[in-house]
Structure formats: structure tokens, C-alpha cells
């Protein structure tokens, strides 16, 4: 036995013995001692209501806030990631102009989740649609399937990502609804940054929430409602 072999052996040796290490009991003991934190709840459905009447053409504050929060470069080349974008619309027949932010619509029936071969695209029980980058193989089928063009593919190796927002080359990504903020009781960076309070964030399932009340009393639309995807992001004024 060489010196280094012995070293490695000692390095990894546990008092329990190397042969029969079972992970599960360790975790169970740990969980009992520690207490399990609460996960996402299926009673909740996170969503947003976007009031396009208040959204200013040319204002890009939501996009800037998103880029800063999630560590995106802010570049707009065809290979750059854009999780949220401002779209300027002009009604072809009447000429009426509207400006609005567009991002992942967090569908109830998301096509990206249906088509993903590895279950990397998934919907959390509280309605947030995410990409599990541990599983994403970068096939880009979800980008083909998304009716809102909400997803971007990371075309280059990345460095110095936000510790709260892991992102990496060769995987697909999109708006996470700032899930890392939501899980701490916060709200998405875009909603927080908007100077005109265009983006109202909340729980669609909670009848007493501001968003649910507004959706009850005002007329709003789902974009591409014809596809019956029931997006969690709703728009007023289009």
C-alpha cells in the first residue's frame, strides 16, 4: 500500500465504517433535531396584474431592475438573455399605442413543461414556472414551445453570478418571478422597481389579496388566451 493510498483512505474513513454508509438515517436524525422549513404551498398561486395604462413608453426601469437582481448583462444582442422586455404595441387599425413589460407568464398549463424531455422545466406547486438547471441538457425545445418567447439560452460561459440566482452556459433560463425573493416574503424586483406601480404582484388564490380584488372588479386579459394556458400574469388595458 503506497503512502498516498493510505492517506486517501484515512481522509475518507469514518468511524461508522466505509462499507455500510447509509445516507438516509443521517438525514432523518438531522431533520428531527433541526425541524423542517416550510416549502412552497399549493394553496398559493403567485401572479401579476399589469396595468398597461400606467406603463410609460420608453421607461425601462423594470428591465434594468431585473438585470441587476438576476445578474444579467443587460445586453440586447440576439444571443443575450432577456428575462423581461418592454414591448411597444401599436393597434394596426386604430393607431392606439400601448407599452408593456413581457416576461414568463407562469402558465397553469405551461407548454415548456410539457415538452421538456428531462423534467427540467417544471412548475412549482405555487404556480412559479422554473428551469432546474441541474437537469437541463440545453435542447431548447421549451424555447420552441413557449408562445411568449419568454426564454433565453445561455450562449456563453458565465462568471460571478448572483449567489441567489444560479445561471450557467448551455442551459435555458427565464423569469423566475424572483423566486428567491418570494421565498423570503419579498416581491419580484420588477414590481418593486416600477416607478408607476404598473406591476401588481400577489396571490391569485387569496380572495382578500389586492390582486384578486382587482381581478374581480376590473377587466383584464390573458395574453394568447386562445391557447388555454391560463397564465399567472394578466394585463389591463389591451
Amino acid at each position: 500500500m503506497s503512502e498516498i493510498d493510505t492517506q486517501r483512505r484515512n481522509f475518507l474513513k469514518t468511524s461508522a465504517g466505509a462499507a455500510a454508509v447509509l445516507i438516509a438515517p443521517g438525514f432523518m436524525l438531522f431533520d428531527i433535531a433541526h425541524g423542517k422549513p416550510q416549502g412552497a404551498s399549493n394553496k398559493v398561486r403567485w401572479g401579476m396584474l399589469i396595468d398597461t395604462a400606467k406603463c410609460k413608453s420608453g421607461c425601462n426601469d423594470c428591465v434594468t431592475a431585473c438585470n441587476r437582481e438576476n445578474g444579467l448583462s443587460g445586453g440586447t444582442a440576439a444571443t443575450d438573455s432577456q428575462w423581461i422586455r418592454k414591448i411597444e404595441l401599436k393597434d394596426i387599425s386604430s393607431g392606439r399605442e400601448v407599452s408593456l413589460p413581457m416576461m414568463c407568464q407562469h402558465c397553469e398549463n405551461p407548454p415548456c413543461v410539457d415538452v421538456c424531455p428531462t423534467n427540467a422545466s417544471f412548475k412549482r406547486v405555487d404556480g412559479i414556472v422554473l428551469v432546474d438547471k441541474h437537469r437541463c441538457i440545453g435542447c431548447r425545445y421549451c424555447m420552441m414551445a413557449c408562445p411568449y418567447k419568454a426564454r433565453s439560452f445561455v450562449h456563453e460561459p458565465l462568471h460571478d453570478q448572483n449567489p441567489d440566482v444560479p445561471r450557467g452556459r448551455g442551459t435555458v433560463e427565464s423569469c423566475t418571478l424572483c423566486v428567491h425573493r418570494i421565498d423570503q416574503g419579498g416581491k419580484p424586483a420588477c414590481a418593486e422597481a416600477c416607478p408607476n406601480n404598473v406591476i401588481l404582484f400577489g396571490d391569485l388564490n387569496d380572495a382578500d389579496s389586492e390582486i384578486a380584488k382587482k381581478l374581480r372588479s376590473l377587466s383584464s386579459v390573458q395574453i394568447r388566451a386562445d391557447l388555454h394556458l391560463n397564465p399567472g400574469v394578466r394585463y389591463q388595458g389591451i
Partner: peptide, 17 residues
């Protein structure tokens, strides 16, 4: 193993330990 277990819990279920 712990990290792998935790990553699925945190990302897919929102259980952030």
C-alpha cells in the same frame, strides 16, 4: 449527497433550509 438532496428540495419544492 446532502447538497444533491437539498438542491432538489430547495429548487423544486421551495424548501430552503
Amino acid at each position: 449527497h446532502m447538497l444533491k438532496h437539498q438542491r432538489d428540495e430547495a429548487l423544486r419544492k421551495g424548501i430552503r433550509d
